[in-house]
Write a protein that binds this DNA or RNA. Sequence first.
DNA 1: GATTTGATTAACAAACTTGTTAATGCGAAG
DNA 2: CTTCGCATTAACAAGTTTGTTAATCAAATC
Lengths: 210, 210
Amino acid sequence: MDKESSHSLNTETKILQAAEKEFFEKGYAGARTASIAEAAGVTHAMLHYYFRTKDKLFERIVSEKINMLGDIVLSGIGDSELPLEDRIRQGVERHFDFISAHRDLPKFIVNEVLARPEHIEMMRQNARHIVNSLVDNLQREIDDYAAQGLCRRVDARMLLIDIISLNVFPFMAAPIVSGAIGDSYGSYEEFLVMRKKENLETILNKLKIR
Amino acid sequence: MDKESSHSLNTETKILQAAEKEFFEKGYAGARTASIAEAAGVTHAMLHYYFRTKDKLFERIVSEKINMLGDIVLSGIGDSELPLEDRIRQGVERHFDFISAHRDLPKFIVNEVLARPEHIEMMRQNARHIVNSLVDNLQREIDDYAAQGLCRRVDARMLLIDIISLNVFPFMAAPIVSGAIGDSYGSYEEFLVMRKKENLETILNKLKIR
DNA sequence: GATTTGATTAACAAACTTGTTAATGCGAAG
DNA sequence: CTTCGCATTAACAAGTTTGTTAATCAAATC
């Protein structure tokens, strides 16, 4: 049982939780403050009391999610003391698992965050240094391996985009993928397990680590 | 110069064009019928005169776009008389070029189509047979090659998802990708040219055609 | 026990959005 | 020339949505 089921939380938290759900499901334009208040089990005046406007409430959720993205990038390409192959494996798997644990996040980011220039700028400032150092680091290691003939010389930035592309898509397109694929692979969850392995293999194959 | 700039088209067409733009940019919930009418240069009563409701106008756009998807799947995995490698190459490139020519389509499909069960069903019925025969066909060919030791035995359905994932993502995430990558690869358009090659290579590498 | 302070409610108001309608224009058919 | 039918317009109506406010409640403080 949850430590706190939603009715025992304070009003502000209840509104935040309900708002996140509503904004994720319907987007900013489709979300209704009255609907959020109802889901939170409070009058809709409370929503304005705590957050003034729909917009400020939305911004609150957006900042929180943008910060989450920082985290995943950090844990992104695994522990730096591992050999390249293990590190890539760990990075890909962690990334896949993170998306899997937050399945509606990519859609939210693409739809609601990337559509607003201020938010893009926020994201960029939040992730720029982390991503840059991660890429530089990874590129150096790949180049080392490649110089010894142990792997192909691939562009680290491209590799990162490969990983994100492969991991994110099955979740964003879940409604079609799950239906179109259901009969061949059993349940969607079973498919995801296979897909995770598949993505890892695709990436390692591209590197051709020997 | 365009054969017909928008003011010379008939009212119905002008509304349809403005509606597509509005729905693509803002989604169903965010779109305003008055805004569509204004962009089309007609009174907003005309919109209701021709299409009755916002919903019916939206459905019109959605059907059109779902049909476009059928086309791309058809041209998807190239001419069947080509050898496997060339066929895959042609398929991947055509797919990439199609998405490139309709950059906002993936977002629209994910946000506005996949969010509605009726539309998912529409898409499925539209594409099911085409996709199935394409996959069966491709799988047979891959298995042939693999039996002769000419390539790895990969799952055709997974390969298809790989291709779509890799090709679609750079466009859906364009706002971050273009910014985060700009300095390393020149313009975003230059990046796309490289990305297309990269994706093809990733796919062919996975197949390891010899 | 009275008072103060923050939380909560119900009612309301303003703005916006979709959709309708009655009147008008205008070209083609008779 | 008139009439008929379709296209178009302006005005309006109903419903929805966000946000405010004045009154009330409850708990802590004096």
